Amino acid sequence: MARMIAQRLLAFLPVLLLVLLIVFALSRLIPGDPATTLLGPGATADQIAALRAQLRLDEPPLSQFFSYLWGVLQGDLGRSLKSGAAVTQELLERLPATLELAISATLVALVIGIPIGVLSAIRANTPLDHGVRIVSLAGVSMPAFLLAVLLQLVFGIWLGWLPISGRNSPYFLGDPVTGFAVLDGFLTGDPEAAWDAARHLVLPVMVLAAFLAATLARFVRNAMLEAMAEDYIRTARSKGLPERSVIFIHGLRNALLPALTVLGIKFAELLGGAILTETVFAWPGVGRYMFDAIRNRDYPVVQGATLVFALLFMLVSLGVDLLHAALDPRIRRRVGQ
Rank of each mutant, 00 (worst) to 15 (best):
E192F: 09
A194P: 00
W195H: 04
D196K: 10
A198G: 12
R199V: 00
R199F: 06
V205R: 04
V205H: 03
M206A: 14
L208C: 02
A209W: 02
A210P: 01
L212S: 12
L212H: 12
A214H: 00
L216G: 00
A217D: 06
F219R: 01
F219H: 04
F219V: 08
V220Q: 01
R221D: 03
M224D: 00
E226C: 07
A227C: 03
A227P: 02
I233D: 06
T235I: 05
T235C: 04
A236T: 02
R237Q: 14
K239S: 04
G240D: 03
L241C: 06
P242M: 02
S245L: 13
I247W: 01
F248H: 10
I249D: 09
G251H: 05
G251V: 04
G251W: 03
L252S: 05
A255C: 12
L257F: 09
P258M: 11
A259E: 06
A259V: 10
T261K: 11
L263Y: 08
L263I: 06
G264N: 10
G264V: 15
K266M: 13
A268V: 12
A268R: 13
E269R: 14
G272D: 11
G273D: 12
L276Q: 06
L276T: 13
F281V: 02
A282P: 01
A282C: 03
P284L: 09
V286C: 13
R288Q: 13
I294A: 12
R295W: 03
N296L: 12
R297H: 14
R297N: 14
V301S: 10
V301P: 11
V302S: 13
Q303I: 15
L307Y: 08
L311Q: 07
L312T: 09
M314L: 15
